[in-house]
């Protein structure tokens, strides 16, 4: 599973970087616009370790933010599956808040919480939370009629049982949604660091941009891609194990 993910990433990254180099040489652009392959290599040798540590810092915040989002989305999703006023309100709020561009809201968060861990965590959570919540809502509000009908008729249906049935019946979909939202958590953390934090790979990319150093950015993107691929594989593996356990 891991090697397939990495292989896919290397293909995408390779296509991207080869195309960039082709454009550079076709249009005869200087190293200022697009760095040469040698410059990218030398930069990679120079900054790889330091950037890897920065990416791990970002990834750790993204993972914590992702876990918080999953937890919150499941709790809120369970409440919002009710066809009561609260349920409807939560659904409408989720749709509306998701429509706000986080880049516009982020500076306010940084003013309130400063540029430390809390802001990065909150923004990472916000970016992956709302899409996650909407997907989980979709799963939890969809009755599994043929199974639920039996428990309803026999008067043994409880809300816990209802949630369990719906999760069990949609476990593959749920794992896919959670895995997919992991990339959003990573993106959210990088966006937060890019805007105002003082740590992580987003902050490092910001500095490289100030220095107009595209080679550093290409190296950062490579490490981000590998790390995200590994995280996605871990999630898929955990989902696979969970599924196997549940299905006996």
């Amino acid at each position: 599973m891991l090697h397939r993910r990495l292989y896919q990433f290397f293909i995408v990254y390779g296509i991207g970087i080869c195309s960039l180099f082709s454009i550079k040489y076709i249009l005869n652009l200087s190293d200022y616009v697009i760095p040469s392959p040698i410059e990218v290599w030398l930069t990679a040798v120079d900054v790889f370790m330091r950037y890897s540590v920065n990416v791990l810092d970002t990834l750790s915040v993204a993972i914590i933010g992702h876990v918080l989002s999953i937890f919150m989305a499941i709790v809120v999703g369970i409440i919002a599956r009710l066809t009561t006023g609260i349920g409807t309100l939560i659904k409408i709020a989720a749709f509306n808040i998701q429509a706000y561009p986080i880049v516009a809201v982020a500076p306010i968060i940084f003013i309130l919480l400063g540029d430390g861990l809390a802001s990065r965590l909150l923004i990472a959570s916000m970016i992956c939370y709302f899409p996650l919540l909407l997907s989980i809502l979709g799963i939890l509000t969809q009755p599994v009629s043929d199974i639920e009908h039996f428990f309803q008729m026999t008067g043994r249906m409880t809300w816990q049982l209802e949630v369990k049935i719906r999760i069990f019946e949609n476990i593959s979909k749920l794992i896919m949604v959670i895995t997919g939202s992991a990339t959003l958590a990573m993106v959210g953390t990088i966006v937060a660091e890019f805007i105002a934090a003082n740590a992580g790979i987003g902050y490092t990319i910001r500095i490289a941009l100030y220095q107009s150093d595209l080679a550093k950015i290409l190296v950062a993107l490579f490490i981000i891609g590998i790390s995200t691929s590994i995280y996605l594989v871990c999630l898929e593996w955990m989902g696979h194990m969970l599924q196997k356990k549940w299905e006996g």
Partner: peptide, 17 residues
């Protein structure tokens, strides 16, 4: 697919210059 993707990407990029 890979060479095709590269060509499409480059055509778009070069034409946008």
């Amino acid at each position: 697919l890979i060479p095709l993707a590269m060509v499409v990407f480059m055509v778009i990029a070069i034409s946008s210059c």
